[in-house]
């Protein structure tokens, strides 16, 4: 595993090649958080209540900090794999003595960490200023492994879609469908607590809730039971998707044709 740790470190250094771009990209979280704050302030004010479905305005806003940090910083590995197939550079990746998927995981996480740090800094800073400090310190400690789990799940799903590039080359439509499904069933725009019961049940049977809703909900209402439930569910989905990824990778590599010969 030492080589994957070093690949991760190299990608971390690579992420710092353009610090201006890194900061500029992270600034995009500010308008998102501002819009969410305006929408939910009006919603809470119009009901005349300080709490809806167990959430206060402060909890709701910190919920969105976590979901947006996960979404904006997540590894874009589907596009990366597709690009290497299209431009032929996959030839190098496959001719080196490492596991292709673990290599991509190491580079994806190396690219995610700094983006996430800046997003937390800007997004969290704005919401702290608008609604106050995060609900609890326990939540901060518990959300960290859940964030890693969420990005690992994102990686598995995006890599599965990326593998389709070995067969169909252009995977943008599949990525679009995944993103929209994650928006709806991952609670990216509205926390699942506000969904009708039947829709919440469907969401809980899909991996999308473990991608963003569950870590964000753990952050604002932490408890040991909730922690083990979230991490347990993430491990379950990682097992299923990890197996699927291994199986499809070995199938897909046989279909590979490389552009330019």
């Amino acid at each position: 595993m030492k080589k994957y740790w070093f690949i991760f470190q190299t990608q971390l250094i690579n992420s710092l090649a353009y610090p201006g771009e890194l900061i500029g990209r992270a600034l995009t979280i500010l308008p998102f958080m501002w819009i969410f704050y305006q929408l939910w302030s009006v919603t809470f004010a119009s009901t005349g209540q300080t709490e809806m479905n167990g959430l206060t305005l402060k909890m709701t806003m910190w919920y969105f900090v976590v979901t947006e940090v996960i979404e904006i910083s997540r590894p874009r590995v589907g596009n990366t794999i597709s690009e290497t197939v299209r431009d032929g550079s996959i030839a190098y990746l496959l001719s080196k003595p490492y596991n292709f998927m673990l290599y991509h995981y190491a580079t994806a996480m190396g690219g995610t960490i700094f983006h996430a740090l800046f997003n937390i800094l800007f997004g969290g800073g704005l919401i702290w200023w608008l609604v106050g400090a995060p609900p609890s310190l326990m939540g901060v400690a518990m959300v960290l492994p859940a964030l890693l789990g969420a990005w690992a799940l994102h990686f598995c799903i995006a890599a599965l879609i990326g593998l389709l590039a070995f067969i169909v080359e252009d995977i943008s439509a599949f990525l679009w469908i995944f993103q929209k499904a994650a928006f709806v069933f991952g609670g990216l725009l509205i926390p699942l607590d506000f969904y009708p019961g039947w829709m919440r049940t469907i969401a809980n049977f899909l991996p999308f809730a473990s991608l963003s809703y569950a870590p964000a909900r753990l952050f604002i209402s932490p408890s040991p039971q909730a922690f083990f439930a979230v991490i347990g569910q993430q491990i379950l989905w990682l097992g299923i998707l990890g197996l699927a990824l291994t199986f499809f990778y070995h199938r897909a590599v046989r279909f590979l044709t490389i552009n330019g010969g």
């Binding site: 190299t10 250094i13 090649a17 030839a91 190098y92 490492y98």
Partner: peptide, 20 residues
């Protein structure tokens, strides 16, 4: 097609290859 990391000095890729 390049195998060297584009934004890094070549020596970083060399060191990485040593590990790989």
């Amino acid at each position: 097609r390049p195998q060297l990391w584009y934004h890094l000095p070549a020596v970083d890729t060399f060191t990485l290859f040593g590990k790989i």
